[in-house]
């Protein structure tokens, strides 16, 4: 069914989808003169896994930050199920069902795994100052604990429920973050590089979990810079480079796209880096280094000199 629908969508940037859940229009964001994001039109289809790929610095994470309210765009608007989301604060976006994870996992290390999960449950009476004092939140807490344990079992974290989240491995933290997002019953899950820094043995299991989100009826958008990883599971792939969407389409179709290969692999890709015995760059590599350094210096000259 999904395959059939996706075959009908034209593989071009900004293509219309039959049932978009998230629609973006002319969103831009600059940092000190550099356009980090500049997307004219982009739609995400409901119920699909959409992979958002592109080289480092393509603006994927910035786009995520903008869509989820963690950053403010210079221009642009976007709607979620027809409701405008622009200008909303991060927590308001999350409450409307658009939940994200982070590239560097934000498992709350000093809370137990179970508390991490229960924290995410929406609309808790005990979360309000006076509600907490009244002490009438016990039953709700019980229900949330039950739901949390179910999800932890599904993500094979139930044995760790009472450990501090700081004790988990990198892959387990990714799983915890995903499970935690599900506590909020989101409509759209946005995963920022869920596979980054994960033991390759765990990658397959993570991918299965991503698929299972879709099978539960959720829309999944995830950022990845390794194209091979997403080929199997994505229903649709959006390619970004230098802040723009340069291509979109089904993953098998994109591998042949010349623009994608160029942008993605970059002009430096096939260049072998050369160093002398002392580790100093030589030849082409030295020129490349000089170029990068002068860019750095120019950025310092231009920018507000000492801001990090």
């Amino acid at each position: 069914m999904r395959v059939e629908v996706s075959a009908e969508v034209p593989a071009q940037p900004g293509a219309r989808k039959p049932d978009p859940v998230l629609v973006i229009d002319s969103i831009t964001r600059s940092f000190g003169g550099v356009r980090a994001v500049d997307v004219a039109h982009l739609e995400f289809q409901r119920g699909w896994i959409t992979g958002l790929i592109g080289p480092n610095g393509a603006g994927k994470t910035t786009l995520f930050n903008l869509l989820t309210g963690f950053d403010r765009p210079d221009t642009g608007r976007w709607t979620f199920d027809g409701i405008p989301l622009s200008r909303l604060a991060p927590h308001q976006v999350a409450r409307r069902g658009l939940v994200r994870t982070f590239q560097l996992t934000k498992a709350l290390a000093k809370l137990t795994v179970l508390d991490n999960m229960r924290l995410a449950a929406p609309q808790q009476t005990g979360e309000r100052f006076f509600g907490a004092l009244l002490g009438t939140w016990g039953r709700q807490e019980q229900a949330n604990t039950g739901k949390a344990m179910e999800l932890l079992t599904r993500f094979q974290l139930d044995a760790k429920a009472h450990d501090l989240a700081g004790c988990l491995s990198g892959g387990q933290r990714k799983l915890l973050e995903m499970a935690r997002a599900l506590m909020m019953d989101p409509a759209v899950v946005m995963l920022d590089e869920p596979m980054a820094g994960v033991n390759p043995a765990l990658t397959e299991s993570l991918l299965q979990h991503v698929k299972s989100l879709r099978d539960d009826g959720m829309t999944v958008v995830f950022v990845e810079h390794d194209m091979d990883v997403i080929r199997d599971i994505s229903d649709w792939v959006v390619v970004m480079a230098q802040g723009r969407v340069i291509a979109e389409g089904r993953s098998e179709a994109l591998s042949a796209n010349r623009a994608v290969v160029d942008a993605y692999l970059g002009s430096h890709h096939d260049q072998v880096l050369e160093f002398d015995a002392d580790g100093n760059p030589v030849g082409q590599t030295a020129m490349l280094v000089a170029e990068i350094e002068s860019e750095l210096e120019a950025a310092i000259e231009r920018g507000q000199d000492l801001s990090a």
Binding site: F102, L108, M184
Partner: peptide, 17 residues
Amino acid sequence: RVLKAIREDEDAVRALG
């Protein structure tokens, strides 16, 4: 619990609504 979570990572808590 929310307060302790904020102490650790504000953004994570924001992302949880």
